[in-house]
Nucleic acid binder design. Structure first.
Lengths: 152, 152
DNA sequence: CAGGTTTTGTTGACGACGCAAATATACCCC
DNA sequence: GGGGTATATTTGCGTCGTCAACAAAACCTG
């Protein structure tokens, strides 16, 4: 029995296919929209108290490096979707705060995304099956990425 | 009710966190190893009849563009893990065929990966829960990415 | 079988991300 | 308070991936 035939490898491959497949559908949904990490950052901001989060917290919650976050926030700032503001209690830190334009955009994109997710994911499953599926995801997520608990 | 608060968005976010989290654990497992797409390509090759696949089939099965596959196979070829061979029946096509070194490497990396997957994913779930989880993933995969049915 | 269309693979230009190094600030301990 | 360590962010550089344009071969249709 070769290790590459192990069904656990296939199980992870299946998870990857599902995630990548959904990510592609979401990307096609709003063509000139945001990349997945940009969307994720904006969603996290709009859901956070004060609509703001420190850059390093964004790095922890997403799967990006801190330099990746720096550049991503640079881009969002150039588009007027986000503003940097200094942290009053720690002069090393800056907040990224979503702007009104950013909040409006993310709400509109989220509405499109819900349609796509419903069509290709949640809508395919019975409520019970979806519940159990999400419960299983949480079990794994809490082990593998416990720092992600503040939103999407 | 704002669209960005829709639980379906959160559901997809959860799926993303799980996938990214596991991908990071797998990447850390064998430091100087292969990237995830490289691993995926090699696994697909070693599982295919004749240990070979046409480049365009690799592009279909993975989530890469054809140019991405060209360059990925370039890299694997430089490392001696894969060879290109012409397709006898269609002179436009080439096969990527895994070499003995490639097969050996992927088997060893797969053994490491199984440990990681078991520790952070399959081993966390009861057999029944895992079965239902995989069944749900297949339901979604068959809708979202039907072309992926030849392996991991 | 000639001409147009589709498919396969490669290349150039470009963007996004990670790592490592640099900088600035905060924290801790004597 | 001073010196050393830890943390937050930015920047330089290399790598990897996409998109658009291209070349070659296959297919298809009159």
């Amino acid at each position: 029995m070769k290790a590459y035939e192990d069904p656990r490898i296939t199980a992870f491959g299946l998870l990857t296919e599902v995630h990548n497949g959904l990510a592609i559908r979401l990307g096609q949904a709003s063509p000139n929209g945001l990349s997945a990490p940009e969307f994720s950052v904006l969603i996290r901001l709009v859901r956070s108290p004060g609509s703001r989060l420190r850059l390093s917290d964004l790095a922890t919650q997403t799967t990006l490096s801190t330099s990746g976050v720096t550049r991503l926030v640079d881009r969002l700032e150039q588009q007027g979707l986000v503003e940097r503001e200094p942290c009053p209690t720690d002069r090393r830190s800056s907040y990224a705060k979503i702007t009104a334009a950013g909040a409006e955009l993310i709400d509109s994109l989220a509405a499109d995304s819900v349609k796509v997710i419903d069509r290709w994911f949640t809508g395919l499953l019975s409520p019970e099956r979806l519940d159990e599926f999400l419960g299983t995801l949480r079990i794994i997520r809490d082990e593998v990425h416990p720092g992600a608990t503040a939103g999407s």
